[in-house]
Amino acid sequence: MTEAIVTTSLIAMFVIAFAANLRLPEADNLPMHFNIRFRPTWSAPRLIALLTMPLITAIIMICLLVFESGNPETATGLKVLAPFMIAAHLLHIYLISRHLKNQS
């Protein structure tokens, strides 16, 4: 069950990143960080900007599976972590999209 949560959430995040790459307007660099007013403070190359969240999530989840697989609280933690990371990824892509639309 825990492996299914990890696999499903990671696949979802990479599919979201792939779809965003196809749908976002052309730009070599995309915002990576936004200030309190939702203005970008720095940017990164397109692929790095879109794949950072899925890769960080993969590292965290795989480490939890490998090192804490015997702990029953790990499954609960992954069930909570997965939707929050997907939501954070969607928020990041939304903010990127909004910024690019405002620039054009």
Rank of each mutant, 00 (worst) to 15 (best):
K79C: 08
V15C: 11
T74G: 02
V80N: 08
A12C: 11
E3K: 14
V66M: 07
A49T: 09
H89F: 00
T52R: 12
R23H: 04
M1H: 15
L78A: 05
T52E: 09
V66H: 06
A12S: 13
M53D: 08
L95Q: 13
D28C: 06
T52V: 11
L100R: 10
A27W: 03
I60L: 05
S9Y: 09
I48T: 13
N71Y: 07
R98E: 11
L81P: 07
R39S: 11
L55N: 01
L24T: 03
H33G: 14
A27Q: 05
L10T: 01
N71Q: 07
I93K: 02
T41P: 03
R98C: 04
M61S: 07
Q103I: 15
Y94H: 13
N35P: 11
A20P: 06
D28N: 13
V15F: 08
L22M: 10
A17W: 03
N29K: 14
G70Q: 06
C63E: 00
E26S: 09
H99A: 09
N35S: 14
A82S: 14
T74P: 02
A17Y: 01
P54H: 00
L81M: 14
A58F: 02
A20C: 05
N71E: 09
T74Q: 06
I16H: 12
S9L: 00
K79L: 11
R98W: 08
E68F: 13
L100D: 10
F38Y: 13
H33F: 10
P25F: 05
L90S: 14
S104C: 07
R39Q: 15
F84D: 00
A82Y: 06
S9F: 10
M32W: 10
N71H: 08
Q103R: 15
F67T: 00
L65A: 00
V66W: 12
L47A: 15
P54Q: 01
T41K: 03
A82C: 07
A20E: 05
L95D: 04
A88M: 04
R98A: 11
A19H: 02
T2Q: 15
A87R: 09
F84V: 13
H99S: 10
P72T: 05
F18D: 10
T52N: 07
K79D: 01
P54L: 03
I48D: 05
G77H: 04
A27S: 11
A44L: 12
R39F: 02
S69D: 12
K101L: 13
N71A: 07
S97A: 12
L78V: 02
I11W: 01
W42L: 14
R46H: 14
T52F: 13
H92K: 10
H89W: 00
V6F: 11
E26N: 03
A75Q: 12
L10N: 03
E3N: 13
R39L: 12
S69L: 01
P83V: 06
T52G: 01
I5T: 13
H92P: 07
N29H: 14
